[in-house]
């Protein structure tokens, strides 16, 4: 294994609209275990951002603590990053977003981070409709502390050490739907063809977008008894609709109008094209989405893909009526009322 990332860029590497290659969206060399699902997520995020032609420095990447939360180091070197404290990324992301509504906020979290220590923060950042993409790399175990079961591990699941999960699991997609997320998806780190379009659509979505990404832990939870192993997930995964992302500039072909396909116009003008596999699939029905997830689970299957979207959703700033100019750009003359106003205020206390 190499410890130094080569700086060399092939002169004929494909460039995007900003003249950047995929190398410009990479991060530091990963220190995660070889084969870790999280590294695939990293590369999917980089690919999505490159293909969307996002200026990397206009993205802020935030995380909590854990293996998943290390991941932002491994993508988007030219974006500012913030490894906060365990389970508290949502509040820091909220404050950052309040300060500058113009940046794109990518939150990276794990199952311990979001479903246990930070479950409260997760619930409330969803509720407050923060405009961000929140990703959970979900492997059902605590990696950094060597393999304890997480709250997302299904009851009865056995980790590598043979310890069985005794209690009901928390399904973060169902939780996100209940808390009012306006974009909810589940994907698999081993299926980039599904994950990349979902990340692109989630970034283009305005309001809170959530993707729960099953990301097997090769070291502590890839054993035959686990339902988070690569093999198990491959064998049990299913989807109700295939999502494709059509960027703004691309001419839209007339595939819509077909009964098994739907085009959803996203906030920035791009299109999310859904091709139904399950005839009963409805991306606009929140209650049905929750039911479908639970039904599949009861049948021992893992439902993936876009669960729910509200393309008309508003975000915190619209509800708050925050100024269009980012708050961190406002100057003293706008913020400070000056001494003359103080005269009237003093008078009210006499």
């Amino acid at each position: 294994m190499s410890y130094i990332k080569p700086q060399f860029k092939h002169p004929r590497l494909q460039v995007n609209d900003l003249g950047l290659t995929h190398r410009d969206y990479e991060g530091a060399l990963s220190t995660l275990c070889a084969g870790c699902g999280h590294d695939s997520i990293t590369s999917a995020v980089a690919q999505a951002c490159a293909e969307l032609s996002l200026p990397p420095h206009k993205i802020a990447k935030l995380s909590g603590i854990g293996c998943s939360s290390k991941a932002p180091t491994y993508f988007l070197n030219n974006a500012h990053g913030f490894n906060t404290v365990h389970g508290r990324m949502p509040s820091v992301a909220t404050g950052a977003n309040m300060a500058n509504r113009d940046l794109i906020y990518l939150g990276m979290s794990g199952d311990g981070d979001s479903a246990s220590i930070g479950f409260g923060q997760f619930a409330h950042v969803v509720r407050r409709r923060l405009n961000m993409l929140y990703m959970v790399a979900n492997n059902g175990v605590y990696g950094l502390t060597k393999g304890q079961l997480a709250a997302t591990a299904e009851q009865g699941m056995k980790s590598k050490s043979g310890e069985a999960s005794l209690f009901t699991d928390i399904d973060l997609c169902v939780s996100a739907l209940q808390f009012g997320a306006t974009f909810v998806a589940r994907s698999f780190s081993g299926d980039k063809s599904q994950l990349v379009p979902l990340i692109k659509a989630a970034i283009s979505h305005k309001g809170f977008a959530f993707i729960d990404i099953i990301s097997p832990c090769v070291t502590f939870n890839n054993n035959p008894d686990s339902n988070r192993s690569y093999d198990y997930v491959h064998d049990h995964i299913t989807t109700a609709a295939v999502a494709d992302f059509v960027p703004v500039k691309q001419e839209i072909r007339c595939e819509n109008g077909q009964s098994d396909s739907e085009d959803i116009c996203l906030h920035d003008g791009s299109i999310l094209r859904l091709s139904r596999i399950d005839a009963d699939y409805d991306a606009h029905d929140r209650i049905k989405a929750m039911t479908k997830i639970e039904q599949h689970k009861a049948e021992g299957k893992i439902l993936t893909g876009l669960m729910y979207i509200d393309p008309e959703a508003d975000d915190y700033h619209e509800i708050n009526g925050t100024s269009d100019a980012p708050l961190n750009s406002l100057k003293q003359e706008t913020l400070c009322p000056g001494s003359h106003v103080l005269k009237t205020i003093n008078e009210s206390f006499r």
Partner: peptide, 14 residues
Amino acid sequence: SAIGIAMGGGWNGA
């Protein structure tokens, strides 16, 4: 969360 929000704001220049 309250102080986390303040911290995010301070980090981002507000």
